[in-house]
Design a binder for these strands. Structure first.
Lengths: 333, 333
DNA sequence: CTCAAAAATGGTTACGTATTCATTTTTTTG
DNA sequence: CAAAAAAATGAATACGTAACCATTTTTGAG
């Protein structure tokens, strides 16, 4: 913190008024005589006084801080959501404490977060059966999950994951691909669970036995995706289309394909889910499934969180509908 | 903040000790008798006590917060630096307040930041002649700039921008391109100024009059880049190579080229500067100039900032050397 | 056992603000 | 001009913690 500790008391003394009056000048000037305001403002200027946020937080029991627990930014989905959330929160005059959660550091993040008296929490890191949910409810702080939800089925904003998985898979099947595969993530995460379910539903509706279709459930870091891709290449019958549970995975698969000299969509069709900004880049041009609405999921979630903070809502349970965004990574077989 | 206001006093009463002892159990347990620790810990458990960060900050005059003012994440450079900075800061047990600065919102960000008693500030938004620099020095809070520097030439970590511009341009020239152009940003920003200077130096060393070479100084949002690209297309002599001041610009140019049906590097060579992670993606494979060191610039900067906070250094003035990363967006003419 | 030293604990205060309640000053009204 | 109402100001306090200093308890040496 700054070197000079000029407080409202110092200002008060300098201006010849009480500390109470200084506080009033800043917060409720309509209760102060214009001439007094002038005196105080002059003292504030000359002493270079800056109110202490911390002390204010202590007495008001409000920090003006929203904690954001996001996934890592190498996942372009979190680039979009973090942007939307941070900008919205700051525009509302709040500050954002950001954490990028991975498997390794989540515990220490949760510890830090629970100690911080944030006014609210927005997070994407929740597992379907996660003790954190109950800890947060116990805390009494408003919170919302985006992208993932908890089995308790409260406080979340998600896309219709089952439908998204269904649409993506159906698109691939309707293009005539017979040999396809799925690459997704751990099923403790509602997102992956739902999307895979949609994948299976689509197979079933096309009369395909899901058990005969290879599915890789991997962690979503580059190494694990690479390993899964190598397994795909060694499949007895090489698939012509890869359905990825997220754009992040799909985009990584694209890179791996090109690295190995394969062409997309000639050698492999690739489809993702999320419709991240990066998928629109013409070097990527990823076919994907995403929100019907123009807003990003992060934006919708943070909007809802503020509604809860303002007591306009109490419990958010929102599932947004999705549609296909056909681009250049899929084509007729 | 939470609903239940259980404080260390409540714990003290419940455990039959003084508040002082509760504080000691948490901060200097080696000064407390094991049996007392046990009693207190039990009380903490049963009352579900969580220490109040805010109160601690007030008395200790440390918030444990680092303010980060980054550029927007649609610029992949800031994806890399934000990741490095946030993860480093959190690993050190601090929190990060993040702002994404654009032309529009910088003033309001600065106001908010100056009121927040952060322990230190790391920012990329500084102009070469910026009053903010003096305000920050006056504040007495440690701060560091990354990527950009101020004319006062203190508290910064940058890459060797002049050399980077030189290397990029020289690479293009050495491939035999005669008709090239530059697309960069406003020269109030040291980064753009330096890189363009390197561009001109390289031209000069090849005996080319810089005045005959088209240069576009644009803002770095998508629309302005698009406008610049359209101007490039209407140049009397269409260039065969485009030197972009940043990877962000280069990658956007790539997308625009493909959108218009041009091929890279066949129709246009494109080179960037920064060597962002995204440039390594095989769908992008951008030739670029970046840090010799493996570390990201954000990482180097935040490391240095902590050195300053710990009084190991007082003034950081660091210019990192750079090298070429040839990939697939450049080729022999 | 005794007494000094060490260990353990507690009482009080400061941090800087907003708030509550009391008091003083000014304005209004009849 | 007096009395009541309104406006303006101030004094005291709470917020929850860590730190300082004082006091009590325990330990160890002789």
């Amino acid at each position: 913190m700054g070197g000079f500790l000029v407080s409202s008391k110092d200002v008060a003394k300098y201006a010849g008024v009480s500390q109470t009056t200084v506080s009033r000048v800043l917060n409720t000037p309509e209760l102060v005589k214009p001439k007094t305001i002038e005196k105080v403002m002059k003292a504030i200027e000359e002493l270079n006084y800056i109110p202490n946020d911390i002390a204010r937080s202590l007495v008001q029991k409000k920090t003006g801080i929203i904690t954001l627990i996001s996934g890592p930014l190498h996942n372009p989905f979190f680039v979009d959501t973090t942007t939307a959330i941070v900008n919205y929160v700051n525009a509302r005059g709040y500050k954002v404490n950001v954490y990028f959660g991975t498997e390794d550091n989540l515990d220490s993040i949760y510890n830090a977060v629970l100690e911080t008296k944030a006014d609210a929490i927005i997070l994407s890191s929740m597992l379907y059966e996660d003790d954190l949910f109950f800890k947060l409810e116990k805390l009494g702080i408003p919170f919302i999950m985006y992208n993932r939800k908890h089995q308790e089925n409260r406080h979340f904003v998600e896309i219709d994951n089952v439908k998204a998985g269904y649409i993506a898979t159906n698109h691939i099947l309707s293009l005539g691909h017979q040999d396809i595969c799925w690459i997704g993530g751990p099923h403790e995460i509602s997102t992956f669970y739902g999307r895979y379910k949609g994948f299976k539903n689509a197979l079933k509706d096309s009369g395909i036995d899901a058990k005969t279709v290879p599915a890789f459930l991997t962690n979503t870091n580059k190494n694990d995706i690479k390993r899964a891709f190598e397994e795909i290449l060694e499949l007895p019958k090489k698939p012509t289309a890869i359905c990825a549970a997220t754009d992040a995975i799909a985009i990584e698969i694209l890179s791996l394909c090109l690295e190995r000299g394969f062409q997309v969509p000639k050698d492999f069709n690739v489809i993702g889910i999320d419709n991240v900004e990066l998928s629109k880049h013409h070097s990527i041009a990823l076919t994907t499934v995403g929100l019907e609405s123009e807003k990003s999921l992060g934006f919708i979630a943070i909007e809802k969180l503020f509604e809860v903070m303002e007591k306009k809502s109490t419990c958010i349970q929102q599932t947004e509908s999705v549609k296909l965004f056909p681009r250049n990574t899929t084509s007729k077989k």
